[in-house]
Amino acid sequence: MPRRAPNETRPHPPARRGSYPRSSGDDDHSVQLADGRRLAEDAVEWLPPAEGTVFALGLNYADHAAELAFKAPTEPLVFLKSPATLTGHRQVSVRPDNLLYMHYECELVVIIGKTAKNVSREQAMDYVAGYSVCNDYAVRDYLENYYRPNLRVKNRDTLTPIGPWWVDRDDVADPANLTLRTWVNGELRQQGNTSDMVFDIPYLIEYLSSFMTLSPGDMIATGTPEGLADVVPGDEVIVEVEGVGRLVNHIVSEAQYAARQVQSA
């Protein structure tokens, strides 16, 4: 089962298929590097699995749209993310001070493997290289009704962990039937299934490639089901997509984050 984790230390070269270390396949959560070395999961600095354009979907699960008191959209609600917001497995995410509500979003990520323009939904899966997991945090206090959700809500430093693994497409038998789960401090808080997506993976690839070219390494975060809740500094948040991965993240305050930055400088 080829699974890839990012290189061990920064600075890292652009992610290339085949250049990543692999899961040792053992239950001890160790990873195996390309040179054969075996390291504990917490002995490496995890990075996002790819480096292309990141697309994210809003309101792409009917139950979640209902939770937010929205009708499911008739066309995909797509927004973009920049590298500024991305981080890896086992990193921290900052909750801004003086907030009412910041929530996690467990999502299946599709990684594009071939240049795609005007691809039909029947052919769309040929353009998928693999899958990963992301936690698409949102700060709801900052929502405004312009290009909603705008970058201040969805593109903040540290607020989009992606990883840990890039799982090859063919190792996931049915991406349209995967359980998504989120735990906060060990308690199951969110559960859903990719079968409830409003716009499924083939549709999203057909839609995006109908007006723009997708390139290898581009990633599509496909939206989240219902079950959102506020998270605060000190919380451990784990998002998991069945058969794809389990992404661990810790919430810190602005002051805690600043102290970490000074320490690592």
Partner: peptide
């Protein structure tokens, strides 16, 4: 109000 012009 912000937007991103991606690499393509």
């Amino acid at each position: 109000v912000l937007f991103i012009k991606p690499r393509n």
